[in-house]
Design a binder for these strands. Structure first.
Lengths: 213, 213
DNA sequence: CCTGCTTGTTACTTGCGGTAACCGCAGTGT
DNA sequence: ACACTGCGGTTACCGCAAGTAACAAGCAGG
């Protein structure tokens, strides 16, 4: 068996893997994250053991699947963060891009946020990650951008990471709630969140008769 | 069978229920949220069907379990929000109370955030909630408090809810990340988050050589 | 022709959530 | 005294999903 053939086979295997991932994608988008391996294999026109040969276990498949979508989302967010405009507008553009993405494909979002516990499988339970890997990645990426573009004085590294994860969490939780209840327009939500980040909470006055805040 | 006996039995059933919940608590805290019903039943000294008679299904048991812990956490957070002090100090006290709670009992926290998909079981998948019920409740409670204590002008209702969920999400994501990596002291984290809420992101200058933010 | 490697299959094991059907024992009406 | 009924409890089962062995065919190369 020659080297060129090895390469051919390797490439064929990668193509196969892509096909399988696309089939898995269809099933997950149709049936949700609890789609069975049997169903995915059937959609791909094959049977379970092949899936296992390619991805090890369900967690492996879901990780591979999640990576594709996460990469895509990260690209659009980076683009939004790089639009040439004032800081507030960039922040709003990024929030809006995220919300538009989860609004357009809630099933993808749902999958990314909730890989049925399969994708983050570790067994020690105390040190396990709780949030979806997507959130961690977004948080870290945002932290990097904040750290390199902002002048935060001493401790900037630490501060940037806290803010990165904090802002991402804010965006996520608000978006999740909004997606479920649709209490207002997307642009309204974006404006409200930007207001929050711009310190309106600190600046607001106490309510007339209230106990103060 | 007399009325008094009915009451006795009802009370006995409630006591039983409490015992079962405590046993379930022990198991979940030991084995994590994916503890099996068999294991929980064994810990309680009985067998599965009794559990099902009391709680319907796993989701019911986990909901009951989660409610206890959520109520307790909410009480401590409310207390922190009611300390008589300046607004910034209250916010910091509340953040600190939350972080102290998840730091002290990470397993409880893990369970509340991740009830193995069991506690939020609905099948339509598109309209399903994604976040843990705990986060929703915290967000709504905070929204109420913000709405009643702050003067936010028109749209205050909507604004308060967005902020409630947003702030809770920020707290959660930052806390989750911090709990996993322990990059700094708790007080530091609290200060950084409060800084973020106080508008330091908007106020910070661009980095010296960077492309601006 | 046989050997080895990849690709695919069928058929199994294990473990879980959930349930049906049965068991024994209190108290009760007659 | 005795059958009857309600209730806490159990065993034994179903269905289903993850994951795995073991085997079957196509196809290189000596």
């Amino acid at each position: 068996m020659q080297t060129s053939q090895r390469l051919d086979q390797q490439q064929a295997a990668e193509n196969r893997r892509r096909e399988l991932l696309e089939a898995a994608d269809r099933v997950v988008l149709r049936d949700g994250p609890e789609a069975s391996m049997n169903a995915i294999a059937a959609e791909a026109g094959i049977t379970k053991p092949i899936l296992y040969r390619h991805f090890g276990d369900k967690s492996g498949l879901y990780r591979a699947l999640a990576k594709r979508h996460t990469d895509a989302l990260l690209d659009t967010l980076r683009a939004a963060l790089d639009t040439p405009a004032a800081r507030r507008e960039r922040v709003e553009a990024t929030l809006d891009a995220y919300l538009a993405a989860i609004e357009a494909r809630p099933q993808v979002y749902r999958f990314l946020m909730h890989p049925t516990e399969a994708a983050d499988a570790e067994k020690d339970f105390d040190t396990r990650r709780h949030s979806a890997p997507l959130l961690r990645r977004l948080g870290e990426e945002l932290a990097k951008i904040i750290a390199e573009r902002l002048d935060l004085g001493p401790n900037s590294e630490e501060l940037a990471r806290v803010w990165g994860h904090g802002i991402v969490g804010m965006m996520h939780a608000a978006g999740d709630w909004w997606l479920g209840e649709r209490p207002c327009e997307r642009s309204q939500l974006v404006a409200h969140l930007a207001d929050l980040l711009w310190g309106r909470l600190a600046a607001a006055g106490d309510a007339p008769g209230g106990p103060g805040f």
